[in-house]
């Protein structure tokens, strides 16, 4: 299957999305709600591209490349004036939402915006509502966080003020996947705190490394079909043991 991308004809695989083709071709466009590990949702709208076909007789439209499957003969522009103008306005508005998010600052700069032309949101945090954390948590199998409320009130939160009785296992997958570092968490020698919940930490008796929270280790052992014992030592300790056995054999 062939498409034309920024004037160049290229071979693509049926079923793949435009964004993966664009990235493979080394073209850089922002796609902040995209994460390779989870299904795309098209929320940030920054990966928009302009598509047309010869038979559309000059008509064209913007689509989000993360969700649009390739089609034979499609003509795609990633940086047309319409795309760039729209993308710049969106970045400008995102910058007003999250003025401290570095990735937004970086992309805004790329589109000529040093400072937002809109009033900055009061009490701005760094969350751009890309939904990656929620999808990652679902993929982990916990469904512990969700987008709640709607419109400008929308936030990602643990549901319904359940207090301590939460599905969150403190695994930090959400925090690590967050593109803006919006999810705050902290760890001291014995505890880890995230989403307002404090977990105790299990450590490797051999190396003293942090293994995770007991809830996290239970969940992963169950999910991977491994013995819980496997998770009572760090990788380093496991390696050490194996090496010792190996030495004995030879």
């Amino acid at each position: 299957m062939k498409i034309t991308l920024n004037g160049k004809q290229i071979e693509v695989n049926p079923g793949e999305y435009l964004l993966s083709v664009i990235r493979r071709e080394g073209i850089e466009i922002p796609a902040l709600c995209h994460h390779d590990a989870v299904e795309p949702v098209g929320a940030c709208r920054l990966c928009i591209v302009e598509i047309t076909r010869p038979e559309w007789e000059g008509w064209s439209r913007l689509v989000t490349s993360c969700l649009y499957p390739v089609e034979e003969g499609l003509i795609v522009e990633t940086h047309s004036k319409l795309v760039s103008d729209t993308r710049a306005t969106l970045l400008d508005m995102q910058l007003a939402r999250c003025p401290d998010a570095e990735i937004i600052q970086k992309w805004a700069k790329e589109y000529g915006i040093e400072k937002t032309s809109f009033p900055v949101r009061e009490d701005a945090d760094k969350c751009i509502l890309c939904d990656i954390c929620v999808r990652i948590c679902n993929a982990v199998g916990r469904y512990a966080i969700a987008r709640t409320s709607r419109g400008i009130e929308k936030v990602v939160a643990v549901p319904l003020e359940l207090g301590e009785d939460q599905a969150c296992i403190g695994c930090l997958s959400c925090a690590h996947a967050c593109p803006t570092g919006a999810i705050e968490w902290k760890e001291d020698s014995n505890t880890r705190t995230i989403w307002g919940l404090t977990f105790t930490l299990e450590k490797c008796p051999v190396t003293g490394e942090v293994l995770g929270t007991p809830q996290q280790l239970d969940h992963f052992a169950k999910k991977a079909g491994l013995s819980r014992d496997y998770f009572t030592k760090s990788d380093k300790a496991h390696k050490h043991e194996t090496a010792k056995k190996f030495v004995k054999i030879i």
């Binding site: 949702v41 098209g42 929320a43 940030c44 709208r45 920054l46 969106l90 508005m93 995102q94 007003a96 939402r97 809109f118 009033p119 949101r121 751009i128 509502l129 939904d131 987008r147 409320s149 709607r150 419109g151 400008i152 009130e153 929308k154």
Partner: peptide, 18 residues
């Protein structure tokens, strides 16, 4: 619409705010 936008996508949510 500001009150009724679902808030999923940037243009509608942030656009209505501005």
């Amino acid at each position: 619409l500001l009150e009724e936008s679902c808030g999923k996508c940037t243009p509608c949510r942030e656009g209505l705010r501005q």
